[in-house]
């Protein structure tokens, strides 16, 4: 119990240090971009958030598949799927918000109907639906949730493919051309981006572990409440 608490505390402190380092490197050490200026600093959070969002949805699908597989069926997989999806939705929202804030000065617009942006927006709603389904609970809801997560994950490449095809058939906007591509020609900028990816991965793992623990406690509490209700009704102590 104490070892687990110490380990969680140590992991939390490590995550916090990584995030502070990201803030220092992103805001101070990394130079402003020659074309985008200080707006490029947003990318040190925007890009890692997008990576982790996709990773989180992959983990949700994987944990759901492991829950459905009879040999590996365990409530922990369901808790991991839920925790990961919650973090994924948070990161997707953050990606879209920071993308918009970055897009206004760079593209000249808050929103561009570009493949990755549109796919990310659809993903947000897809997994908001999944989380809404999870929140309803009910008898044997874990299996239902696991199947829903897999269906949502199957939809991800279909959404991406159709949206990419759609945007490629449209004339590209004048503000969205090759010059907008992010080319990293400074070592400090590249390092900060990788630091961001590392810090967000740690944050993802820490949040998932904490949320899994909470979901486990919630689940155990529900079982105890049910047993107590049955014992009260039948008069037989559980």
């Amino acid at each position: 119990m104490i070892a687990s608490w110490l380990w969680r505390r140590w992991f939390g402190i490590l995550t916090l240090k990584a995030l502070v380092a990201l803030a220092v490197f992103g805001l101070v050490v990394a130079p402003p971009d020659s074309e985008q200026g200080d707006a490029a600093r947003l990318l040190y959070v925007h890009v890692p958030a997008a990576w982790i969002a996709y990773l989180a949805f992959f983990v949700t699908a994987l944990a759901s598949a492991l829950y459905l597989w009879p040999r590996t069926r365990n409530d922990s997989w369901d808790h991991l799927a839920g925790a990961s999806a919650e973090f994924g939705v948070l990161c997707t929202g953050l990606t879209l918000f920071l993308g918009s804030v970055w897009g206004k000065p760079i593209w000249g617009t808050w929103w561009q109907w570009e493949a990755r942006l549109t796919t990310t927006a659809v993903l947000l709603f897809l997994y908001l639906g999944y989380l809404a389904l999870r929140r309803l609970g009910g008898v044997s809801s874990q299996r239902r949730n696991a199947i829903a997560a897999l269906i949502a994950f199957i939809d991800v490449p279909i959404v991406h493919f159709s949206v990419s095809w759609w945007t490629s058939l449209h004339q590209q906007g004048s503000v969205f051309n090759d010059k907008m591509d992010v080319t990293i020609n400074d070592g400090r900028m590249a390092f900060t981006l990788w630091l961001g990816a590392g810090a967000f991965t740690l944050l993802f793992a820490w949040c998932c572990l904490g949320r899994m623990r909470l979901l486990g406690i919630e689940s155990k509490n529900s079982e105890l409440e049910l047993e107590a209700a049955i014992a009260q009704r039948t008069g037989v102590p559980s």
Partner: peptide, 23 residues
């Protein structure tokens, strides 16, 4: 998926609409 649960009327659009986007 939502047949046996409460609030299915509001959940169906939230689940179906993002899924039919590519279509």
């Amino acid at each position: 998926l939502v047949a046996g649960i409460r609030a299915r009327e509001t959940l169906v659009p939230l689940l179906v609409l993002p899924a039919v986007t590519p279509l």
